[in-house]
Write a protein that binds this DNA or RNA. Sequence first.
DNA 1: ATGGTAGCGCTGCTA
Length: 268
Amino acid sequence: MRIATWNVNSLKARMAKVEEWLSYAAPDVLCMQETKLADGAFPAMAFAALGYESAHHGNGRWNGVAILSRVGLENPRSGFVGEELGAIEECRLLTASCGGVEVTSVYVPNGREVGSEHYDRKLEWLDHLQQDLVTHCAPEGSMAICGDFNVAPEDRDVYDISKFAGATHVSPEERERFKALQSFGLEDAFRLVYPDADQLFSWWDYRAGDFHKHRGMRIDHILVTRPLASRVTYALIDREARKGMGGERPPSDHAPMLVDVAIGPASA
DNA sequence: ATGGTAGCGCTGCTA
């Protein structure tokens, strides 16, 4: 089974690129973030025509998460467990059962600046995610939590740690919470395949030519429980998909990431 | 170089 995640930065602006990417990357499951769509505007029919069932959770202007699956999609549910109408999670969390795997599409708050109220909300949001996992999920099951975590787990996951002094995405508090997810029983699928690779990124600022200067961060992750981790055969951050073509605008500030797990109908 | 770009949507916010 090929599981992928992509922060598309507006599905409305990116639909053609997403369809193109589906056709050549051929994931069985794709988690998207920042669709920036209301549920009623989500192009479920277009994805169905490509063979994908889908679920979407969005309010419109900001955030918005989705799951596409061509190996079945059952029991979609959004938000934190027991939460009233997404008051805390803000259309950033969606889970569904896809081909025997509990798949979550997650878009963690950015945090803006360390010490700001937005930063505090980011930490609280990550605590909520952890609490839901501990209370309602079993690490011995088959789970994949995929998305934009807005956390670079290690110094080697940013282009120059000295440029990030006091910045979000690398603070000890954020990294502690990322490690807590791992302690629950979730493994960073990228690191299973590339334990020694440095300077491989999933996001580059649109500004100042950062992409072409290789100034990025690895903040998009696929975390898998051990039954899946033991069957991971391949992983890739598709940097090519971040390039603009022939002077076009770049497709998103994030590259898609995928992982192959040797289970299910599409196993390698 | 405390700059810079993209998306939404029409003013400034979010990233």
